[in-house]
Design a protein around this nucleic acid. Sequence first.
DNA 1: GTCGGCCTACTCGGATATCAGCTGTCCGAGTTGCCCTGG
DNA 2: CCAGGGCAACTCGGACAGCTGATATCCGAGTAGGCCGAC
Lengths: 126, 126
Amino acid sequence: MKYSRATDYALHTILFLARNGSEKKLGVQELAEKQNVSPTYLSKILNKLVKEGMIYSSPGVNGGYSLGPHWEEISFFDIIQAIEGKTSLFDCCLNSNPECSIKKVMLAAEKNMEEELRNKKISELV
Amino acid sequence: MKYSRATDYALHTILFLARNGSEKKLGVQELAEKQNVSPTYLSKILNKLVKEGMIYSSPGVNGGYSLGPHWEEISFFDIIQAIEGKTSLFDCCLNSNPECSIKKVMLAAEKNMEEELRNKKISELV
DNA sequence: GTCGGCCTACTCGGATATCAGCTGTCCGAGTTGCCCTGG
DNA sequence: CCAGGGCAACTCGGACAGCTGATATCCGAGTAGGCCGAC
Protein backbone atom coordinates (compact mmCIF):
# COMPACT_ATOMS: atom_id res chain seq x y z
CA MET A 1 0.00 0.00 0.00
CA LYS A 2 1.38 3.33 -1.03
CA TYR A 3 0.28 6.77 -1.96
CA SER A 4 0.40 7.18 -5.70
CA ARG A 5 3.01 9.33 -7.33
CA ALA A 6 0.17 11.49 -8.62
CA THR A 7 -0.48 12.62 -5.06
CA ASP A 8 3.16 13.57 -4.73
CA TYR A 9 2.98 15.60 -7.92
CA ALA A 10 -0.20 17.33 -6.83
CA LEU A 11 1.19 18.33 -3.46
CA HIS A 12 4.40 19.67 -4.90
CA THR A 13 2.62 21.54 -7.66
CA ILE A 14 0.36 23.34 -5.24
CA LEU A 15 3.36 24.23 -3.13
CA PHE A 16 5.13 25.55 -6.21
CA LEU A 17 2.16 27.70 -7.09
CA ALA A 18 1.88 29.01 -3.55
CA ARG A 19 5.54 29.92 -3.36
CA ASN A 20 5.35 31.52 -6.77
CA GLY A 21 2.71 33.95 -5.59
CA SER A 22 -0.93 33.14 -5.35
CA GLU A 23 -2.00 35.16 -8.37
CA LYS A 24 0.67 34.33 -10.91
CA LYS A 25 0.07 31.68 -13.51
CA LEU A 26 2.51 28.88 -14.26
CA GLY A 27 2.41 26.78 -17.40
CA VAL A 28 2.19 23.02 -17.09
CA GLN A 29 5.46 22.78 -19.02
CA GLU A 30 7.39 24.60 -16.38
CA LEU A 31 5.70 22.75 -13.53
CA ALA A 32 6.38 19.41 -15.19
CA GLU A 33 10.05 20.13 -15.79
CA LYS A 34 10.64 20.90 -12.13
CA GLN A 35 9.26 17.51 -11.18
CA ASN A 36 10.49 15.46 -14.11
CA VAL A 37 7.03 14.43 -15.24
CA SER A 38 5.50 14.52 -18.66
CA PRO A 39 3.38 17.66 -19.08
CA THR A 40 0.36 15.77 -20.36
CA TYR A 41 0.27 13.50 -17.38
CA LEU A 42 0.67 16.33 -14.92
CA SER A 43 -2.13 18.16 -16.69
CA LYS A 44 -4.42 15.22 -16.03
CA ILE A 45 -3.59 15.28 -12.35
CA LEU A 46 -4.06 19.01 -12.07
CA ASN A 47 -7.45 18.79 -13.70
CA LYS A 48 -8.66 16.86 -10.69
CA LEU A 49 -7.64 19.78 -8.51
CA VAL A 50 -9.33 22.20 -10.89
CA LYS A 51 -12.60 20.30 -10.57
CA GLU A 52 -12.37 20.58 -6.80
CA GLY A 53 -11.93 24.34 -7.14
CA MET A 54 -8.48 24.38 -5.56
CA ILE A 55 -6.74 25.85 -8.58
CA TYR A 56 -7.70 27.64 -11.76
CA SER A 57 -6.66 26.88 -15.29
CA SER A 58 -6.53 29.42 -18.08
CA PRO A 59 -6.45 28.13 -21.65
CA GLY A 60 -4.95 30.00 -24.52
CA VAL A 61 -1.65 31.74 -24.99
CA ASN A 62 0.14 32.54 -21.74
CA GLY A 63 -2.33 30.25 -20.05
CA GLY A 64 -1.47 28.07 -17.11
CA TYR A 65 -2.48 27.19 -13.59
CA SER A 66 -2.95 29.51 -10.67
CA LEU A 67 -4.28 29.11 -7.16
CA GLY A 68 -7.93 29.42 -6.32
CA PRO A 69 -9.34 32.13 -4.06
CA HIS A 70 -9.31 30.08 -0.86
CA TRP A 71 -5.95 28.46 -1.41
CA GLU A 72 -4.74 29.34 2.06
CA GLU A 73 -7.32 26.98 3.50
CA ILE A 74 -6.31 23.99 1.39
CA SER A 75 -5.16 21.16 3.61
CA PHE A 76 -3.02 18.18 2.75
CA PHE A 77 -6.07 16.03 3.21
CA ASP A 78 -8.04 17.99 0.62
CA ILE A 79 -5.41 17.41 -2.01
CA ILE A 80 -4.94 13.76 -1.18
CA GLN A 81 -8.64 13.12 -1.26
CA ALA A 82 -8.97 14.91 -4.60
CA ILE A 83 -6.36 12.61 -6.13
CA GLU A 84 -6.81 9.32 -4.32
CA GLY A 85 -10.57 9.45 -4.03
CA LYS A 86 -12.76 9.40 -1.00
CA THR A 87 -12.68 5.69 -0.25
CA SER A 88 -11.59 4.45 3.12
CA LEU A 89 -8.16 2.87 3.51
CA PHE A 90 -9.57 -0.32 4.90
CA ASP A 91 -12.55 -2.37 3.89
CA CYS A 92 -13.52 -5.46 5.75
CA CYS A 93 -14.65 -7.53 2.81
CA LEU A 94 -15.26 -10.65 4.84
CA ASN A 95 -18.71 -10.49 6.30
CA SER A 96 -20.77 -7.41 5.78
CA ASN A 97 -21.00 -7.20 9.54
CA PRO A 98 -20.93 -3.52 10.44
CA GLU A 99 -19.83 -4.46 13.94
CA CYS A 100 -16.56 -6.03 12.79
CA SER A 101 -14.16 -5.14 15.56
CA ILE A 102 -11.15 -5.24 13.28
CA LYS A 103 -12.72 -2.69 11.00
CA LYS A 104 -13.39 -0.44 13.95
CA VAL A 105 -9.78 -0.44 15.02
CA MET A 106 -8.55 0.23 11.51
CA LEU A 107 -10.94 3.08 10.90
CA ALA A 108 -10.02 4.68 14.21
CA ALA A 109 -6.35 4.57 13.28
CA GLU A 110 -7.11 5.99 9.86
CA LYS A 111 -9.01 8.84 11.44
CA ASN A 112 -5.92 9.66 13.45
CA MET A 113 -3.85 10.18 10.34
CA GLU A 114 -6.66 11.99 8.61
CA GLU A 115 -6.99 14.51 11.41
CA GLU A 116 -3.32 15.33 11.21
CA LEU A 117 -3.56 15.86 7.45
CA ARG A 118 -6.72 17.90 7.79
CA ASN A 119 -5.01 20.31 10.16
CA LYS A 120 -1.94 20.83 8.03
CA LYS A 121 -2.38 23.43 5.34
CA ILE A 122 -0.15 24.05 2.38
CA SER A 123 0.03 27.74 3.28
CA GLU A 124 1.96 26.84 6.42
CA LEU A 125 4.89 25.72 4.29
CA VAL A 126 5.20 28.76 2.05
CA MET B 1 -4.57 3.80 -2.06
CA LYS B 2 -5.96 0.94 -0.09
CA TYR B 3 -4.89 -1.80 2.22
CA SER B 4 -4.75 -5.05 0.31
CA ARG B 5 -7.29 -7.74 0.92
CA ALA B 6 -4.45 -9.94 2.09
CA THR B 7 -4.09 -7.74 5.15
CA ASP B 8 -7.75 -8.17 5.86
CA TYR B 9 -7.41 -11.94 5.62
CA ALA B 10 -4.38 -11.98 7.87
CA LEU B 11 -6.04 -9.92 10.58
CA HIS B 12 -9.17 -12.01 10.57
CA THR B 13 -7.25 -15.27 10.55
CA ILE B 14 -5.24 -14.30 13.60
CA LEU B 15 -8.41 -13.24 15.35
CA PHE B 16 -9.98 -16.60 14.46
CA LEU B 17 -7.01 -18.44 15.87
CA ALA B 18 -7.04 -16.37 19.03
CA ARG B 19 -10.73 -16.91 19.62
CA ASN B 20 -10.35 -20.58 18.91
CA GLY B 21 -7.89 -20.99 21.76
CA SER B 22 -4.26 -20.16 21.50
CA GLU B 23 -3.02 -23.75 21.39
CA LYS B 24 -5.46 -25.41 19.02
CA LYS B 25 -4.58 -25.91 15.40
CA LEU B 26 -6.86 -24.94 12.56
CA GLY B 27 -6.45 -26.19 9.00
CA VAL B 28 -6.16 -23.69 6.18
CA GLN B 29 -9.27 -25.23 4.63
CA GLU B 30 -11.43 -24.28 7.53
CA LEU B 31 -9.91 -20.82 7.84
CA ALA B 32 -10.37 -20.19 4.14
CA GLU B 33 -14.01 -21.26 4.12
CA LYS B 34 -14.89 -18.81 6.86
CA GLN B 35 -13.49 -15.95 4.81
CA ASN B 36 -14.44 -17.12 1.33
CA VAL B 37 -10.87 -17.26 0.08
CA SER B 38 -9.08 -19.98 -1.79
CA PRO B 39 -7.05 -22.13 0.64
CA THR B 40 -3.87 -21.92 -1.41
CA TYR B 41 -3.93 -18.15 -1.48
CA LEU B 42 -4.61 -17.91 2.21
CA SER B 43 -1.74 -20.28 2.84
CA LYS B 44 0.62 -17.93 1.03
CA ILE B 45 -0.51 -15.06 3.17
CA LEU B 46 -0.19 -17.01 6.38
CA ASN B 47 3.33 -18.06 5.47
CA LYS B 48 4.37 -14.45 5.79
CA LEU B 49 3.10 -14.49 9.34
CA VAL B 50 4.90 -17.77 10.00
CA LYS B 51 8.18 -16.23 8.87
CA GLU B 52 7.67 -13.39 11.33
CA GLY B 53 7.14 -15.92 14.10
CA MET B 54 3.59 -14.83 14.84
CA ILE B 55 2.02 -18.18 14.11
CA TYR B 56 3.16 -21.77 13.73
CA SER B 57 2.43 -24.17 10.93
CA SER B 58 2.42 -27.94 11.32
CA PRO B 59 2.67 -30.02 8.17
CA GLY B 60 1.35 -33.53 7.86
CA VAL B 61 -1.92 -35.11 8.77
CA ASN B 62 -3.96 -33.05 11.22
CA GLY B 63 -1.62 -30.18 10.51
CA GLY B 64 -2.65 -26.57 10.46
CA TYR B 65 -1.89 -23.20 11.92
CA SER B 66 -1.70 -22.20 15.55
CA LEU B 67 -0.64 -19.09 17.40
CA GLY B 68 2.92 -18.46 18.43
CA PRO B 69 4.08 -18.19 22.04
CA HIS B 70 3.86 -14.40 22.29
CA TRP B 71 0.62 -14.03 20.42
CA GLU B 72 -0.89 -11.81 23.08
CA GLU B 73 1.65 -9.15 22.24
CA ILE B 74 0.91 -9.11 18.52
CA SER B 75 -0.34 -5.69 17.47
CA PHE B 76 -2.30 -4.70 14.42
CA PHE B 77 0.77 -2.94 13.17
CA ASP B 78 2.87 -6.09 13.36
CA ILE B 79 0.45 -7.96 11.14
CA ILE B 80 0.04 -5.15 8.66
CA GLN B 81 3.76 -4.69 8.36
CA ALA B 82 4.28 -8.40 7.83
CA ILE B 83 1.85 -8.38 4.92
CA GLU B 84 2.28 -4.95 3.37
CA GLY B 85 6.00 -4.66 3.89
CA LYS B 86 7.97 -2.10 5.79
CA THR B 87 7.97 0.66 3.23
CA SER B 88 6.65 4.05 4.12
CA LEU B 89 3.27 5.14 2.83
CA PHE B 90 4.71 8.20 1.18
CA ASP B 91 7.82 8.70 -0.85
CA CYS B 92 8.80 12.04 -2.19
CA CYS B 93 10.22 10.95 -5.51
CA LEU B 94 10.79 14.46 -6.76
CA ASN B 95 14.12 15.63 -5.52
CA SER B 96 16.07 13.44 -3.19
CA ASN B 97 16.04 16.34 -0.78
CA PRO B 98 15.77 14.87 2.70
CA GLU B 99 14.47 18.20 3.94
CA CYS B 100 11.37 18.10 1.75
CA SER B 101 8.75 19.74 3.92
CA ILE B 102 5.91 17.87 2.29
CA LYS B 103 7.53 14.58 3.11
CA LYS B 104 7.90 15.63 6.71
CA VAL B 105 4.23 16.37 7.07
CA MET B 106 3.22 13.11 5.45
CA LEU B 107 5.53 11.02 7.57
CA ALA B 108 4.32 12.73 10.72
CA ALA B 109 0.73 11.91 9.84
CA GLU B 110 1.66 8.34 9.02
CA LYS B 111 3.36 8.01 12.40
CA ASN B 112 0.12 9.05 14.03
CA MET B 113 -1.76 6.15 12.50
CA GLU B 114 1.11 3.81 13.14
CA GLU B 115 1.15 4.57 16.84
CA GLU B 116 -2.52 3.79 17.13
CA LEU B 117 -2.04 0.47 15.36
CA ARG B 118 1.02 -0.34 17.43
CA ASN B 119 -0.93 0.07 20.64
CA LYS B 120 -3.85 -2.08 19.58
CA LYS B 121 -3.29 -5.77 20.14
CA ILE B 122 -5.32 -8.61 18.73
CA SER B 123 -5.66 -10.09 22.20
CA GLU B 124 -7.80 -7.11 23.19
CA LEU B 125 -10.54 -8.26 20.84
CA VAL B 126 -10.78 -11.88 21.93
C1' DG C 1 2.76 -58.61 18.45
C1' DT C 2 5.70 -55.56 16.15
C1' DC C 3 8.33 -53.51 12.66
C1' DG C 4 8.57 -51.38 8.34
C1' DG C 5 6.56 -49.63 4.33
C1' DC C 6 2.78 -47.42 2.01
C1' DC C 7 -1.10 -44.20 1.85
C1' DT C 8 -3.40 -40.16 2.88
C1' DA C 9 -4.03 -35.62 4.59
C1' DC C 10 -1.86 -31.86 5.20
C1' DT C 11 1.55 -27.59 4.39
C1' DC C 12 5.34 -25.34 1.38
C1' DG C 13 7.19 -23.20 -2.63
C1' DG C 14 7.62 -21.97 -7.31
C1' DA C 15 5.59 -21.06 -11.77
C1' DT C 16 1.93 -19.18 -14.07
C1' DA C 17 -2.56 -16.75 -15.39
C1' DT C 18 -5.62 -12.89 -14.73
C1' DC C 19 -7.02 -8.42 -13.72
C1' DA C 20 -7.22 -3.68 -12.05
C1' DG C 21 -5.11 0.56 -11.38
C1' DC C 22 -1.25 3.61 -11.96
C1' DT C 23 1.60 5.84 -15.23
C1' DG C 24 2.34 7.78 -19.41
C1' DT C 25 1.61 8.86 -24.58
C1' DC C 26 -0.89 10.54 -28.54
C1' DC C 27 -4.03 13.12 -30.97
C1' DG C 28 -7.80 16.08 -31.97
C1' DA C 29 -10.51 19.94 -30.17
C1' DG C 30 -11.25 24.20 -27.98
C1' DT C 31 -9.46 28.77 -26.38
C1' DT C 32 -6.90 32.95 -26.28
C1' DG C 33 -3.43 36.38 -27.34
C1' DC C 34 -0.73 38.24 -30.91
C1' DC C 35 0.76 39.40 -35.46
C1' DC C 36 0.06 40.43 -40.13
C1' DT C 37 -2.24 41.93 -43.98
C1' DG C 38 -5.66 44.47 -46.67
C1' DG C 39 -8.30 48.33 -46.93
C1' DC D 1 -4.38 53.56 -38.72
C1' DC D 2 -7.67 49.92 -37.94
C1' DA D 3 -10.31 45.65 -38.49
C1' DG D 4 -10.40 41.00 -39.36
C1' DG D 5 -8.32 36.72 -40.26
C1' DG D 6 -4.85 33.52 -39.35
C1' DC D 7 -1.28 31.56 -36.51
C1' DA D 8 0.86 29.90 -32.47
C1' DA D 9 0.81 28.72 -27.71
C1' DC D 10 -1.66 26.99 -24.52
C1' DT D 11 -5.17 23.66 -21.90
C1' DC D 12 -8.90 19.82 -22.19
C1' DG D 13 -10.58 15.33 -22.97
C1' DG D 14 -10.76 10.79 -24.60
C1' DA D 15 -8.54 6.70 -26.33
C1' DC D 16 -5.01 3.69 -25.74
C1' DA D 17 -0.58 1.22 -24.42
C1' DG D 18 2.72 -0.60 -20.86
C1' DC D 19 3.79 -2.00 -16.46
C1' DT D 20 3.47 -3.27 -11.85
C1' DG D 21 1.32 -5.39 -8.03
C1' DA D 22 -2.69 -7.82 -6.07
C1' DT D 23 -5.24 -11.92 -6.51
C1' DA D 24 -5.62 -16.02 -7.37
C1' DT D 25 -4.70 -21.18 -9.40
C1' DC D 26 -2.03 -25.36 -10.25
C1' DC D 27 1.26 -28.70 -9.46
C1' DG D 28 5.09 -31.06 -7.51
C1' DA D 29 7.60 -31.68 -3.14
C1' DG D 30 8.06 -32.44 1.63
C1' DT D 31 6.13 -34.05 6.08
C1' DA D 32 3.64 -36.48 9.60
C1' DG D 33 0.27 -39.64 11.30
C1' DG D 34 -2.11 -43.91 10.69
C1' DC D 35 -3.08 -48.28 8.58
C1' DC D 36 -1.81 -52.76 6.87
C1' DG D 37 0.75 -56.64 5.88
C1' DA D 38 4.88 -59.61 6.51
C1' DC D 39 7.55 -61.87 9.68
